[in-house]
Every structure is written in structure tokens, then in C-alpha cells.
Amino acid sequence: MGAEIHGTQKFNESKRTEIKFSEEAMATAKLLMSNYPQGKEKSAIIPILHIAQAEFGGWLSPEAMDYVAEILNIRPIEVFEVASFYTMFHLKPVGKCVFEVCQTSSCWLNGAEDIVKHIEKKLGIRVGETTADGMFTLKVAECLGSCGTAPMLQCGASYHENLTFEKVDRLIADYRTENKQKNYTDLDYKNTL
């Protein structure tokens, strides 16, 4: 039923089967829903969207959002209006590492613009783009609350602070070599609770 709302084709059942939480993720989602009074489970929508994003490749497809609607027993539009409001939800595919470079005042005062330019050069992409190997997406972000350790960038749950060009180079190399399989946009919700 979400098809018309998202303006996409109605997804077929075979594709539907791919969109399913792991048992572990589902258990976490249910646990999160129990944090709110009976009948108010919709409150868990943001936390569950974080899980969905981690489970389904770092972004929220219309199908993924519809799936969350099903879990919460709400209309798909209610999920879409939330997912489209909050900056941390990606509604288009992203790389395994999403670099979000803070660009607001204190970070700008400490050279954030040059950090962005440096990453652009290093990765051969512009802000908003993803590298051809699907490894990195570069974004700029508004104040991430790290002003005393500026300039900084966030990647998944990690804050990388007091950045210099060298530190950025090292970071890129580390993410490339360390674990290509890992999806760094995964906030690792399951291990939190």
C-alpha cells in the first residue's frame, strides 16, 4: 500500500522477502518498542529506522520504510514523513563509509573548508558523491557538537576530531584496508541494548 505514497512502483513479493530484519534486529526493535507506553509504540520509529538503515545497506529504500511501517503497525506515510525530516537518514544509496564533515562556525574557523577540499581531492569526488568502488560518500554536516575539537568529521558512530590533512589521509587508508566488508554506517544498535 506504500507504493502510491512514495511514488514508486509497487514492490513485488519476491523483492519483499529480502527486506526482513535478522532475528537479532527484530528482537532489538521489539525491545525498543517496549520502552514506551502501550499504544504509543510509534515512539520507537526513529530508533527502528536506525536499525533498518544498518540492516539494509546504509540507506532507507521505500521498501525498507514500508517494512518499518509494518513492524510499527502504522501507515507508510508516517514513516516517510519522519525519515525525510531527519538528516541522519539517507534516502538514497551511500558508500560503506559516509564522511560527514562539520562546516559550522567553530569548525569553519578551524579550517573545515580546507579539510573538505582535501578529501575531495584525495577521493576524487565532490561533496554529495560516492567513490566508484562504493567505499566512501562525502557529505557536509551542520554542527555536530564537537566545536572544541574542530575541525572534525563523523563516520557512522565514530567522531574523528582535531583533523589535519595527515590525519584525514590516515583515516582514509585505515578505512580502506581495515575491513572492506564492514558497513561503517551501521551504528551497531544491536550491541547497545
Binding site: S43, I46, P47, L49, Y86, T87, M88, F89, C143
Partner: peptide, 10 residues
């Protein structure tokens, strides 16, 4: 007491 995580909105 529960922690509720947002998703980026000043």
C-alpha cells in the same frame, strides 16, 4: 529511565 536516540535535527 530510557535513552531515546534522535536522528539529526537542531
Amino acid at each position: 529511565c530510557h535513552v531515546h536516540v534522535g536522528a539529526g535535527a537542531y
